[in-house]
């Protein structure tokens, strides 16, 4: 049986661990709140963007299905799978879930004879994917809230160019959608070809009557540039949602860890008291036995 001192040492060590997990939980909670606000802050831009596209499409009366980013490719030969993971761990199964979902997608395509390019964001995803023996086409590391839009643009640029010249035929985005801090919700979404529901529905009624716009330069050029922007904002939002989910997952994981530590401290304290009591009883027995021997 462990000695009193051993147990006391263990209690102290668990205490220290608990301090760390508690601190991490609180940091994650603060970051989560900021990340949620950041998601909220993208709304004006995203809504205006959709309205812009809707108005232009309405104005031009173009058949959007002819646009290279909206036109599905007839044959699937190669796809791109983008996985958005975190740079850090200690957040439960967050990264593992995303990686598994992305690799599932890759394997499903492989079974159909379709090749996949993997684009991975986040150190954790990159190292896991590499470890499992998959080749990464492009990695994005150390993404912060500040640079997230830049990364989203770079990512978009890469896939759009290859989609337009038909070297890839579909683009999947695998990320963790943010619903609530407790819920993990891995999503696999096709972002190219652009799904058609984006066009038309965000056109406000009054805009249609006043569509006598001047264009600098011509409307076709502007529309051609707006569609990539739509993909950018989609990816940007996905990155932010991923970050919020990461903090949520870490908060939950660290809370569980703190609770486990509490429980462990309780058990150890109990064990220690038992050992202490045993040694006291032992001592009393010895004293009594000694006294008996003398008087006997």
């Amino acid at each position: 049986m462990a000695s009193q001192r051993d147990i006391r040492r263990r209690i102290a060590s668990v205490h220290n661990t608990r301090k760390i997990t508690k601190a991490m939980e609180m940091v994650a909670a603060a970051r989560l709140r900021r990340a949620q606000q950041r998601i909220e802050a993208t709304r004006p831009y995203a809504l205006n963007m959709l309205e812009f596209i809707g108005q232009l499409v309405n104005y031009l009366q173009v058949d959007l299905s002819l646009h290279p980013l909206l036109k599905p490719h007839a044959h699937l030969k190669k796809v791109a799978v983008i996985a958005l993971t975190a740079d850090r761990g200690m957040c439960g199964a967050f990264n593992a879930n995303i990686v598994r979902r992305a690799l599932d997608r890759v394997n499903t395509y492989a079974a159909e004879g379709v090749e996949s390019d993997l684009v991975v964001m986040g150190r954790k995803g990159v190292s896991t994917v590499r470890f499992q023996g998959y080749k990464i086409d492009r990695a994005y590391l150390d993404v912060t809230e500040r640079t997230a839009f830049l990364e989203a643009q770079a990512l978009t640029n890469g896939v759009i160019r290859r989609y337009a010249n038909e070297s890839i035929d579909r683009v999947h985005l695998v990320f963790n959608r943010f619903k609530s801090p407790m819920e993990q919700f891995v999503t696999d979404q096709v972002i190219l070809p652009i799904q058609e529901e984006i066009t038309g529905q965000y056109c406000p009624a009054d805009a249609q009557e006043h569509m006598d716009f001047l264009f600098e330069p011509d409307p076709e050029t502007i529309l051609a540039d707006l569609l990539p922007s739509y993909v950018e904002i989609t990816i940007y939002r996905a990155i932010l949602e991923g970050m919020a989910s990461e903090h949520g997952a870490r908060m939950t994981a660290m809370r569980a860890a703190s609770e486990a530590a509490d429980e462990m401290i309780n058990d150890l304290t109990l064990a220690m008291n038992r050992v202490r009591q045993a040694s006291i009883t032992q001592e009393i027995l010895e004293v009594v036995a000694g006294a008996d021997a003398l008087s006997g």
């Binding site: 812009f52 232009l56 006043h210 569509m211 006598d212 716009f213 001047l214 264009f215 600098e216 330069p217 409307p219 050029t221 502007i222 540039d225």
Partner: peptide, 19 residues
């Protein structure tokens, strides 16, 4: 800062979309 050069906008400007 439009792609076609700087664009000054005053009140009651005609509807315009610029890159």
């Amino acid at each position: 800062p439009a792609v076609t050069g700087e664009l000054g906008i005053l009140p009651r400007h005609a509807p315009l979309v610029a890159q």
